[in-house]
Amino acid sequence: MADNFVIQVRDAGIRFRLNRRSRRNFKDLFAGRKRRARSDEFWALRHVNFDVTAGEAIGVVGRNGQGKSTLLKLVAEVMLADEGDVQVIQGVAPLIEITGGFVEDLSVRDNVYLTAGLHGMTKREISDRFDEIISFAEIERFIDTPYKHLSSGMKVRIAFAVISRLEEPIILVDEVLAVGDKAFREKCYRRIEDLLEGGRTLFFVSHNERDLRRFCSRGLYLDKGELVLDGPIGDVLARYNADYGS
């Protein structure tokens, strides 16, 4: 990998198998024959190529089900490519499905220590940032409340507060703030801008054109699992809108 690249994707693809039951006709039913399972392959991504340099802010666009979240999971190394190669040489802070991994029966306090620890923070580092995390999430009254009793919006708040305090150079954001209220969403967006000013690299999946233009200078347009266009975010959004309407 070239020294200035933090991510390099070469002809990457990932596939899933869809197991389906073949239909039985009346003769099969009468004879007591079982349906036979058949497996179909579905390529969520295929022949994807791009490079990312440190400090870039990239918006990933496309309709639902076109491979955007799968691409982020490849970069996060949550999934592995079935073909091609994905190299990531810096750590990743994944703001994707961020409430996953939290334990419902543990308190908010214990979940902060558990989740931050799983992402590599030491107990001392978590303790030093604990008050900052709780204050950002605006849930001071609930730190010893079982996580399962929080509203969906409060769960997103604490999860974002924890993950956004990680020191990882690459940030992956996948529509995670849709649940939050407008004021808190703006607070999170300002936090993302602060991280970008500090030189972080951003992958941002969103259907909100205004947000994409706010954060991103470059865009990746995915359609049917393939990379249709890689270019300036304005050009990518124009192509996407021309294909599917604004």
Rank of each mutant, 00 (worst) to 15 (best):
L172V: 14
L237Q: 09
D174P: 01
T115Y: 15
G67Q: 04
V205M: 01
L227N: 01
A54P: 00
R165N: 13
V88Y: 11
C216M: 02
N241W: 13
L237S: 08
Y240N: 03
H119M: 08
I158M: 02
G199N: 06
R210K: 13
G198E: 14
A137I: 04
S39E: 11
N111F: 01
P146C: 11
D40R: 09
R165L: 12
G153L: 07
G59Y: 11
G153A: 07
T122N: 03
V6Y: 06
E209P: 00
E167S: 13
I171V: 13
V78C: 04
G100W: 12
C188D: 09
L80W: 15
L229I: 12
A238W: 12
V52M: 05
K224N: 12
G101S: 07
R10K: 14
E41Q: 06
E193A: 13
M79E: 15
L106E: 02
F203L: 05
R124C: 07
G180Y: 10
F30Y: 12
G120D: 06
D105S: 10
A137W: 07
V103P: 00
D82A: 05
R214S: 05
R33K: 08
L71Y: 07
D3N: 06
K27Y: 12
R124K: 12
R185K: 10
V60F: 11
S151L: 03
D3V: 14
E209K: 08
I7S: 02
K73H: 11
G67L: 08
V176K: 07
G84V: 07
S39P: 00
R239P: 01
R20D: 07
R15P: 00
P232T: 15
I158A: 02
F130C: 01
L227G: 01
P169I: 14
R200E: 04
G117S: 04
H149G: 00
G231C: 06
A2W: 09
L114T: 06
G153T: 04
R190Q: 14
E125H: 10
G65S: 05
R239Y: 14
F142D: 01
D11L: 08
E125P: 02
E168S: 13
N64L: 04
F204V: 10
G100T: 12
Y147F: 14
E193V: 05
S217E: 13
E77R: 15
A183K: 11
G32T: 10
E226A: 14
F204L: 06
I96E: 08
R17W: 15
I96C: 08
K123I: 08
G120I: 10
F16Q: 03
D235Y: 11
F26R: 09
L18F: 14
M154W: 05
G84E: 02
A37G: 03
D235H: 12
R20L: 14
R210I: 15
D235S: 12
R157W: 06
E140L: 01
G199V: 15
Q87G: 02
A12C: 05
Y221V: 09
V179I: 13
G245D: 04
L71I: 05
